[in-house]
Design a protein around this nucleic acid. Structure first.
Length: 556
RNA sequence: GAGAAUAUAGCUCAGUCGGUAGAGCAUCUGCCUUUUAAGCAGAGGGUCGAAGGUUCGAGUCCUUCUAUUCUCACCA
């Protein structure tokens, strides 16, 4: 069927002779009995070597491939031999598949030109149907030998599911009612060498049943390009992700705020409690960190005189991976001068509700099996009240010792090293957060957990901060930004002490940041929204891997 | 980090008590000019995730490893 003995057959069907020398090829296997295939260059080289020394069949570096790829590679060569370029440079597309269906008029025979990937083929001798998939959807093509001519029809017969072609013809409706294109010409635009997984579908009682779907999650993530080709709903999720980001961006720029870019490579990382990725700059011979947040840089810009700045930022945190966490993730941070966290809460409600309406045309969404209403206003609850409501324990004004006792009563085992703020956070995280399914603003966190937030003017030990919890998960975090440089220095220095005691997530003193706010930062509200999580909620995806094109996996 | 599950053809999956590896789709050959999970007839395709072990004999039993998935713990 194919090569070798060093001889190359151009096609399984059409030829039995070696291209360069015209001799008969012989199927070859290695010592383990495995058939191998080689690149065209390797084949030619091998052919020459074999001509020189027929008894010395060295095993070249190769890919071990299956018969289907082998056949397609031969087909590619065969097409080239027939003077057909399997990879031409362009094709004039005038219609998308969606437009053809949308603009269809009965009997009009509207001329169209479409291009896309062949997804199904039904050959019936001298006429055939196949489906083309382009970025907008699928369209059926009907092709008759009488009309496209024998040459074109023969080329078509060589094509495979997965090949990309251009078709010119006119729109019509088939006997069974499907709007289709009656082909007048066909052009191969790209030969595919790998068989794509073929999923078939059928309507049963009005429900679409899919057979043999490409469903192995590992392969879907590793080969997202295949996932996107064969699982159309995946594409919709990412289109929506893009719409969410543009909708938010429009909202922000509409307020007159400036989109900015700040360093990803930072000599001192800060703005959040997390372990960083470390890297090295060769020319400067210095250690750098991938940012865990961009907060401290955006605040420098507020010092510099911008009234509102935001950045859609990739952040990197060297921590665990699960369905809510990817080592690199996207966060939008926003800082607005002269505003406080109460103002920011209203802004967030409006932003999220509007975004949902813009992308879903609905202010409710399904997430993790719950219907979530994103209608404003969202519920607001202080962290103390929330704990009282969900545990029955009033922790207001409790000392560290009392808090520890309360936690024990609730059945929580605590690290003896952690102090009040952290204990409150533990109680909240364990007993309250998972129950907050509908959007809820949790406000007024202990100062200790929030070294960059401004303290409440009337409540010592409490900062002006809120988090928005949806579906039991934090989606944003915001506070009135601390702008007293003296207190900020104290807070960072006490963080540094925690760090010395082994808290790897405690912050580092950033002298340049302190210098900046010593010049004076106006009162300011800051916000971070986890984009991946917001996209999960608005698209109803249960795993962060389904809203990131290329989630992190270990190498194959 | 802990536990559970999974890994067999290009895809989706069977594989009984340990005895020469199976199906559907895809591919190939032949027929078929409005089909749509097209159809009919035939054919080819496998290092059974990797490495050891037990056994006359391992896809199957044992050990180790690798990857993934799902829980749980930690971080957004």
């Amino acid at each position: 069927m194919f090569f070798l003995n060093g001889h190359i057959a151009p096609s399984g069907k059409k030829s039995a002779l070696c291209l360069p020398c015209g001799r008969k090829p012989v199927k070859r296997q290695d010592s383990a009995g495995v058939a191998h295939i080689y690149s065209q260059t390797e084949l030619i080289t091998m052919h020459k070597e074999n001509e020189q020394n027929k008894n010395n069949l060295e095993q070249p570096t190769q890919l071990s491939l299956n018969d289907q790829m082998l056949r397609r590679l031969e087909e590619r060569q065969h097409l080239m031999d027939a003077g057909i370029n399997p990879y031409p440079t362009q094709f004039e597309v005038t219609n998308s598949s969606m437009e053809i269906i949308k603009d269809f008029e009965e009997e009009a025979k509207t001329p169209v030109s479409v291009a896309g990937r062949i997804m199904t083929i039904r050959k019936m001798g001298k006429a055939s149907f196949f489906h083309l998939q382009d970025s907008s959807g699928r369209i059926q093509i009907y092709m008759k030998k009488d009309e496209v001519g024998e040459a074109t029809y023969n080329i078509f017969k060589l094509l495979d599911i997965g090949d990309i072609v251009g078709v010119k013809g006119f729109s019509f409706r088939t006997k069974t009612g499907e709007i289709s294109v009656h082909a007048e010409s066909l052009e191969l635009l790209t030969k595919s060498l790998r068989p794509i997984p073929v999923a078939k579908e059928k309507e049963v009682d009005g429900e679409k049943v899919i057979f043999d779907a490409f469903s192995d999650k590992e392969m879907r993530y590793r080969q997202r390009y295949v996932d996107l080709i064969v699982n159309p709903e995946v594409k919709q999720t990412f289109i929506k992700r893009s719409a969410i980001v543009s909708s938010m961006r429009n909202f922000f720029t509409g307020q007159g705020w400036l989109e900015v870019e700040t360093p990803i490579l930072q000599p001192i990382y800060g703005g959040a409690a997390a372990r960083p990725f470390t890297t090295h700059h060769n020319a400067l011979d210095m250690q750098l960190y991938l940012r865990i947040a961009n907060e401290l840089y955006l605040k420098r810009l507020i010092v510099g005189g911008f009234d509102g700045v935001f950045e859609f930022a990739k952040d990197f945190r060297n921590e665990g991976i699960d369905r809510f966490h990817n080592p690199e993730f996207t966060q939008v941070e926003l800082y607005v001068a002269y505003k406080d966290y109460n103002w920011m809460m209203k802004m967030v409600e409006e932003l999220i509700c509007r975004t949902a309406l813009a992308v879903n045309q609905s202010d409710s969404t399904m997430f993790l099996g719950n219907e979530i209403s994103l209608k404003t206003p969202f519920r607001r609850l202080s962290i103390i009240d929330a704990i009282a409501e969900y545990t029955g324990k009033n922790i207001a004004g409790q000392s560290e010792e009392e808090l520890r006792y309360t936690a024990r009563e609730l059945g929580l085992e605590l690290d003896p090293k952690i102090s009040s703020g952290k204990i409150i956070d533990e109680i909240f995280g364990e007993f309250v957060e998972p129950k907050l399914i509908q959007p809820t603003f949790i406000t007024d966190y202990p100062t200790e957990m929030s070294p960059l937030a401004k303290e409440h003017p009337s409540q010592p030990g409490i900062v002006e901060r809120f988090e928005l919890i949806v579906g039991g998960k934090e989606v944003c975090n915001s506070f009135s930004e601390l702008n007293d440089p003296v207190i900020q220095r104290e807070r960072l220095e006490s963080q540094a002490k925690l760090r010395q005691r082994g808290d790897e997530e405690a912050m580092i003193v950033d002298e340049d940041f302190l210098r900046a706010i010593e010049y004076g930062m106006p009162p300011c509200a800051g916000l971070g929204i986890g984009i991946d999580r917001l996209v999960m909620i608005l698209t109803g995806q249960d795993s962060i891997r389904d809203v990131i094109f290329f989630p992190h996996l270990k190498p194959e």
